[in-house]
Amino acid sequence: MTAIAYRRRSKRAAWDEEPSLLGKAVKALFLAAYAAAVIIPLWSIIATSVATDDILDESGGDMVFLPTEVSLQAYREILSGGAVTKSLLFTLLLTVVGTAISLSLTVAAAYGLSRPGSVAHRKFLTAILITLLFAPGMYPAYLVVQDLGLLNDMWALILPVCFSAWNLIVLRTFFMTSVPGELIDAARIDGAGEFRTLFAIVLPMSKAILAVIGLFYAVGYWNTYFLAVLYTPGLETKPIQVLIQQWLLAATGPQGQDAAAAAAISSGAANAPAASLKTAAIVCTIVPIVVMYPFIQKHFTKAVITGAIKG
C-alpha cells in the first residue's frame, strides 16, 4: 500500500505537492518583501503628512518615517474650503455620477444581450466586441468630444468612458450562467415584464458582480487624470489627481489660490509645511478607495471567477 500510495503521489502535479520547508521560507520572504515595498512608502507619506515643522526641518524638508511629534494642521488647511476641498468634492461628484451612469448602461446592455431572441442580438454584440480589438485612438476621440461641445465640461470626463465592453462581457456571462433561467421563465408566466424581471429577480441575485464592476468604474473615475488634462484644461475646478500633479511638479500651492497663499505654501511659510500639505493631499485621495475596498473584497472571488469563467 505504501508503494502504491507513493506512485499515486508521484504522479501529482508539482503545485499539488506539499511545499518543502525551504519553499515555504522563500515564499514568506518574497511576500514580506512585497508587502514592505507597498507599506513602507505609504507609511512614509502618512507620517510626513502629520509631521511638524521641526521634524521636517531635521529631515531637510523631505519625507520622514517616524515623526516624534504629530500635527494635523495640513489636513485642517486642506479641508478648510480651499481649492483642494473643492477639487475633492468635484471628484466625488464625478465618481458618483459617472459610476451610476456606467453601471446603469452596463446592466441594461448586459441583460438585453443575455436574453436569447433579443433584437439584433448578434449584431450589437459583435459591434461591442470589435471595440476591444480596435481602439479609435486619441485624436479621433478628441475630435468627437470637441464636435459634441463637451470640452472643458464635466461630461467630457464621463461620456467617453461611461461604457466598458469588458465589464459588459463579464456581466452578460454572469447573467447567462449564474441566474437560473427557470426563475425568469416563472416570472414571465406570472406576467412580469422585462423591467420587473430585471429589478425583482436578476439584480438581487447579482449583488456580488455589481459591487465588483461598480468598484472598477468608481476607481477609474476617482483616478481620472489623462482625460482631464486632454479634455478639460480650462475647467476651473479640476479633479484631485490633476490638482496634485500640478501642485507637485510646479512646487506651488493648489490651483485656484491667490498668489500670496501659493507663495506662502511653496516657501514653507504657511501654517503647515509644504511637504505636509502635499502628502496630506495624497492621503486624501487614497483614503476613499482604502475605506471602500474591504467592503467589496469579499465579492471579488465569487463575482469575477463566476462571471468570467463559467460557461
Rank of each mutant, 00 (worst) to 15 (best):
M1V: 12
R7D: 11
R7V: 12
R8V: 13
R9H: 09
R9F: 11
A14D: 14
D16P: 01
E17K: 15
E17W: 09
P19N: 07
L21R: 14
L21T: 13
V26A: 14
F30D: 02
A33W: 08
Y34L: 15
Y34G: 08
A35Q: 02
A35E: 02
A36Q: 10
I46L: 15
T48A: 11
S49I: 10
V50Q: 06
D53P: 12
D54P: 00
D54N: 07
I55G: 00
I55D: 04
E58A: 15
S59C: 02
M63W: 06
F65Q: 10
E69F: 07
Q73S: 13
A74W: 04
R76L: 14
R76W: 11
S80N: 14
T85S: 14
S87F: 10
L94M: 12
T95H: 04
A100G: 10
L105C: 13
L105Q: 08
T106E: 06
V107F: 05
A109W: 03
A110I: 05
G117F: 10
H121M: 05
A127C: 09
L132P: 03
F134D: 03
F134N: 03
A135H: 10
G137K: 06
M138W: 03
Y139Q: 11
Y139G: 01
Y139W: 12
P140W: 12
L143A: 13
Q146G: 09
D147S: 15
L148S: 09
L148T: 09
L151W: 03
L159R: 12
F163R: 09
F163T: 06
F163A: 06
A165T: 15
A165W: 10
R172G: 06
I184T: 14
D185K: 11
R188M: 09
G191W: 02
G191H: 05
A192Y: 12
A192K: 12
T197K: 04
L198Q: 04
V202K: 01
P204A: 05
K207T: 10
K207S: 07
K207I: 05
A208G: 06
V212G: 01
I213N: 07
Y217E: 04
G220V: 02
Y221T: 00
W222P: 00
W222L: 03
N223Q: 10
N223R: 04
F226K: 02
A228L: 07
L230T: 14
Y231C: 01
T232V: 10
V242D: 00
V242F: 01
Q246V: 02
L249G: 01
A250S: 15
T252C: 00
P254S: 05
D258E: 11
A262V: 06
A263L: 11
S266P: 05
G268Y: 05
A269L: 15
A269K: 14
S276Y: 06
L277P: 04
T279H: 08
V283Y: 01
V287N: 13
V291S: 01
V291G: 01
M292N: 00
P294G: 07
P294M: 07
I296P: 06
T301D: 14
T301Y: 11
T301L: 13
I305R: 12
I305Q: 12
A308C: 09
